[in-house]
Every structure is written in C-alpha cells, then in structure tokens.
Design a protein around this nucleic acid. Structure first.
Lengths: 198, 198
DNA sequence: GTCTATAGGCAGATAGAC
DNA sequence: GTCTATCTGCCTATAGAC
C-alpha cells in the first residue's frame, strides 16, 4: 500500500499522521506516545494537541486516512486489471509494500490491540476489515463465475480466509525480519484458490 | 490450547501467570499492568515483585510456560494420531481453544508488539514460532511422502503459511467476536493442503 | 510472603504567553 | 501555531515493617 512518506513539504497535520502511522505500525497504539512524535518532528509535545485534541482523535484520523487510501488503491486495481487472479495478486502486493521497515498493516496491528482501543477506533478498524472482505468477496465471486478461480467455501468465507492469511503473514514475518516469509505465506494463500492462470 | 485456569488451589506464582496470561492474550504486553493482576487477585501490587522481579521477568516466565505446554500438546498429538491431515486438524484445534474469551495466541499477540519487547522476550517469541514451524514442517513432509497431502512449496514454507494463516485467523476474528470466522479461515488454510481424507 | 508507603519517571492533557 | 510550564494520574519498582 502506498503509505510512503512523500511528505517532505506536507503541512503539519499530515506530517503528524505520517509519523504516527509508522509508529503504530511498528510499535502499536499502546506502544507510542506524543513524545515520540514530537521528538521526530522537533516540535513541542503540547503543539500536537492543537492539531489533534487527544490520542484517541489522532488514532481515529489515522484509521480514516488509511482506509480512504486503501479504498482508492482497490479502485485502482479494479480500473487497471480484468482477471480475478491478477487482482488478488495486486491486492497481496498492497501488503507487501507495507512490510518495508518492519511494519504491519495499520489495522492488523490495531486488531491485536482491539480490546484496549477507544470505541470510535475499534469501530473504524472493523469497518476497514468489512471494506476488505466486501471487495475480496466480490472479486472472488467474479473469478468463480468466470471459471478462473475455484472456491471451496462461500465468497465471504474465502475472503475472510484470504484476509486472515495475509494479515497473519505480516504477523509471523515480524520476528524473522525477512520479507521472504511474507512472500511465501502470501503465495500459498493465493495458490490455494487459483485454478488457471490462463 | 489447554491454558484453562484450573488453578483453583494453585500456588501464587502460578495464579499470577494464569491471570497475566489472559491479560496479555486479550490486551497485549503493553496493555496491562501489575495493578490489573493485583486487583484480580486481591493482593497488593508490591507483592507481585516478590514472585517476579519485574514485568520483563514475568513476561519471560509467561512465554516459557506457554511454550512448554504447547510442546507437550504437540507431543500428545504425535502420540495419539497417525495420519498427517488429522494431526493438522488437531493442531488447528489447539488454537480454536484459545479463542474463547476473545483471546489470541499469546505469542501471536507478542509478535505484533515484537519491536517493543525486552530482548529476552522477543527471542523467546521467535523460539516459539521456530518450534511450531519445525513441528508443522515435519508433519507436512511425512504427509507428502505418505501421499495424503500435496505440497506446492517446501515443507518449511508450507509450515510458515499454515502458521501465518492460523495466527491471522485469530487476529481478524477479534473485531467480529465470532469464533465462526476463525473456523472458516482455519478450514480454508487446511483445505488448501489436504488431498485425500482416505 | 504480604503489607503500606513512597520514590521517580513518563503518560496524556491544559493554561496562557508569544 | 508553537512555545514553556505545569497538573494529575498511572506506571514500574524499592524500602522496610509485620
């Protein structure tokens, strides 16, 4: 996913989000503080509260921006690729981008911390997953009716399976600090569904 | 996995581990405190330090006990089942037990928080994964040479894929608070490998 | 072994000057 | 918008009585 910090000349609220996003993806919501952001920006802690009233509001903004970006990436895949298998491969690539710098998917990390999140944040995490499952289920159903994919479960169940496998791939790859582990896991998840690459 | 708190008459160090284990599985290492344990045990915070000098030592003890238990469960599977597919199903059941009470695998949770853990803890998490991958790779290789499983990757890669899929299944099931989601994801991960149920 | 008391630090957050 | 100063609360951890 294109979460890249091309924020050289970005405004302050965006730069805060960029830095906070990386911190959450690496250390989790409960593993970073305003002091971490302030240090990295060479700004005072108190200044951050001007842009985001509290940590909960910052967290919400983080998920909101991330979900919008992800949704746009999914639309871009729909616009540029036809075949379902190719779309799934592109989907997996979205995540392999994330792995650089020992990150996880923002919402995968927050799913682990789910029980400790403020309610608005946990609701937003769930919506991110809903978005992913809905998109995947549609692509899988299309592939199945076109005959290029074979599903052994319902499209929604298969979609949950794919999402889970990819999120899990990022999770277990962390202790090994080896992107290859993610690639192997992802390839296997996709391979279980693909039938013909035409 | 049988992590059940049958610790009615257990001694204090074990009861501390039981409660801390549940807290980490639900809230993460950075999401609980000595105060949480003390409250649940109706004991003073300071008393906990007599049994575990610091949070890091408690965390190490947690992973150590969990890994030993898990290893014993794997040995029990080896002792009671012959066919590789049946062993894999029993392995998945180990995790579905964990899900009760909105928990994750202890080490799956710690893998997310990996970058924030004290070194001895992160090393132990990695050892837990190594143990799992080694066991799974052996079972998969046995199944492949017996002809009951078909592998499209090396045994180790397939093992990583299976581990990742199951850990991911626990992760994405959390926002839905629905064990069925885990079951669907797990079934799909296993289905991608099974060939003949004889 | 468990307690009370407390140290010392860092968290998130606010007030008010500039 | 950003700063300094400060508040309050919780955290991990220790000292020492019982």
């Amino acid at each position: 996913m294109n979460t890249t910090e091309l924020s050289a000349g970005a405004n302050t609220p965006e730069r805060i989000l960029d830095i906070a996003e990386g911190l959450v993806q690496r250390r989790g919501y409960n593993g970073f503080s305003y002091a971490d952001i302030a240090r990295e920006m060479s700004i005072a802690k108190a200044s951050l509260h001007y842009h985001y009233a509290g940590k909960a509001e910052l967290g919400e903004a983080l998920i909101e921006r991330y979900t919008v970006r992800f949704g746009e990436a999914l639309e871009a895949i729909d616009a540029s690729l036809e075949e379902a298998g190719a779309k799934l491969a592109a989907y997996a690539d979205l995540y392999s981008d994330v792995l650089r710098g020992d990150r996880m998917c923002l919402c995968g990390m927050l799913a682990a911390e789910y029980e400790t999140l403020p309610d608005p944040m946990s609701d937003s995490v769930r919506r991110f997953f809903d978005l992913n499952v809905a998109w995947l289920a549609r692509v899988l159903a299309d592939g199945a009716s076109a005959g290029t994919l074979s599903l052994e479960a319902s499209p929604v169940e298969a979609a949950q399976g794919l999402l889970g496998a990819l999120q899990g791939a990022m999770l277990v790859a962390r202790p090994y600090r080896d992107p290859q582990v993610f690639q192997a896991v992802a390839a296997q998840a996709l391979g279980g569904i693909a039938v013909a690459s035409t």
